[in-house]
Amino acid sequence: MIINHPLLGPCDAQEFVYKGDFRLIDRPDGMAESAEAAFFDYLYLRENPAGAHRELWFHEQGDRSWLVVTRNTVTHEITNVELARDVARSMGRSR
C-alpha cells in the first residue's frame, strides 16, 4: 500500500506502524465523575466497519508523524490522509 503523507508525499506502507481506530485520540478525562465507564468505552469498544475507516498510522521509519488515514477496509483504497495532530486539535484536544 502507498500512504500519501501530507508533508512527504507518497510513502510505502512498510515505513509505517499501524495502531488502530482514530478515536483513540479522544481520550476521556481521567479525573471526571464517570471516568471509569468512559475509559471502558474508549479502550474496549471499537467500530469495525466494512468500508471507510479512519485509523492511526505512525511514520516510524520516516518523519515520526502520527497520521489519520481514511482507508476502505474492503478495497484498501485510501481516500484521505491527515496529520493526527490537526485531527486532534479539530476534535478539541489541546493541552
Binding site: 495532530r85 486532534a88 484536544r93 493541552r95
Partner: peptide, 19 residues
Amino acid sequence: AVPVYRHMEFARQCLWPDM
C-alpha cells in the same frame, strides 16, 4: 526503546497536541 518512543509521540501528537 522503540515502543515507548512511539507511545510518547502518540501522547504528544494525538492526546495533547498543544503541549
